[in-house]
Amino acid sequence: MIFVRYENWKSYLRFYPATSLLLLANFVLFLIVSFDGGSTNVETMLRYGALYSLDPYKSDGWRYFASMFLHNGFEHLFFNSFALLVLTPPLERIMGSFRYLVLYLGSGLLGNVLSVSYYAQSSSIPHWLVGASGAIYGVYGGLLYIAMLQRDKMDEASRKMLYTLLIMGAVFSFLPSIGWMAHLGGAIGGFFIYGLMVRLFKSSRM
């Protein structure tokens, strides 16, 4: 089962440096924001890089990356950090840290772009968006590619676990205040980014 973590903290840092760095960035930024206005304060979050579905904020390109490292309250941070800590490391081992980061950030970017476009066109009510979940669903998308098309890289128990996570994620994505479009866009992005990398790096371990 690839989703069970057996490592101690020293081994975890050595095996998953990119995931460890992402976790650290999320926690550090959460602490900074918490002591400078609060992680649930809209004005504070906009100052630090939250996405917003109205101009001039939606035209700020840097927000589409910065918002991945912001979280709306501790509960939001906790659930995304748990997913990062436990569920995403297998893909870093398969891809290597650099390619894993490219997939993570690329998926999060696509999820954010689709979310802002969707809310800007479909709702007259402004929406502000933060969180790592689009990027995390991008990792799920990469793992889904493996489960479906590289079956030798994933055992049956892990494959069933992944399908269960995706089904549960799809259900919870439609709860109030959840950015379902970021989840969907991230998952699609991760699936195709992983597939593209497989073709670009045929001679590598992918």
Score class of each variant (00 low, 15 high):
9 W>G: 04
101 L>E: 05
147 A>S: 02
119 Y>M: 05
48 Y>I: 10
202 K>M: 13
166 L>M: 13
167 I>Y: 07
77 L>T: 02
180 W>S: 00
171 V>P: 01
95 M>F: 09
47 R>G: 06
181 M>H: 05
205 R>S: 05
146 I>T: 05
88 T>H: 03
175 L>F: 12
116 V>H: 09
200 L>M: 15
77 L>H: 03
34 S>K: 04
121 Q>H: 08
163 Y>Q: 05
47 R>Y: 08
87 L>N: 12
181 M>F: 11
154 M>G: 08
166 L>A: 07
194 Y>M: 09
145 Y>D: 00
23 L>N: 01
44 T>W: 02
33 V>W: 02
44 T>R: 02
35 F>L: 15
188 I>G: 02
153 K>W: 13
202 K>I: 12
19 T>Y: 10
147 A>I: 01
109 L>M: 10
74 F>W: 08
2 I>T: 07
81 S>M: 07
86 V>E: 00
125 I>T: 13
55 D>W: 11
195 G>F: 13
158 S>A: 13
169 G>E: 09
187 A>V: 14
131 G>W: 12
166 L>S: 05
21 L>A: 11
19 T>C: 10
104 Y>N: 02
138 G>A: 03
74 F>Y: 05
60 D>K: 07
62 W>A: 10
76 H>S: 09
97 S>Y: 07
73 G>T: 12
189 G>H: 03
162 L>K: 02
4 V>A: 02
192 F>D: 05
69 F>W: 09
106 G>C: 10
117 S>Y: 02
151 R>W: 10
30 F>D: 06
122 S>K: 06
67 S>R: 01
177 S>H: 11
165 L>C: 12
175 L>Q: 07
157 A>F: 11
134 G>A: 15
87 L>Y: 15
77 L>R: 03
52 Y>F: 08
185 G>E: 06
18 A>C: 05
192 F>S: 03
150 Q>F: 06
140 Y>L: 14
126 P>F: 01
105 L>W: 11
137 Y>W: 12
170 A>K: 01
118 Y>G: 01
171 V>N: 05
52 Y>W: 00
78 F>G: 00
52 Y>R: 01
189 G>R: 02
89 P>H: 06
25 A>F: 11
104 Y>E: 06
35 F>T: 11
70 L>Y: 07
156 E>D: 12
137 Y>N: 06
1 M>F: 07
202 K>G: 15
79 F>H: 09
173 S>M: 09
160 K>T: 10
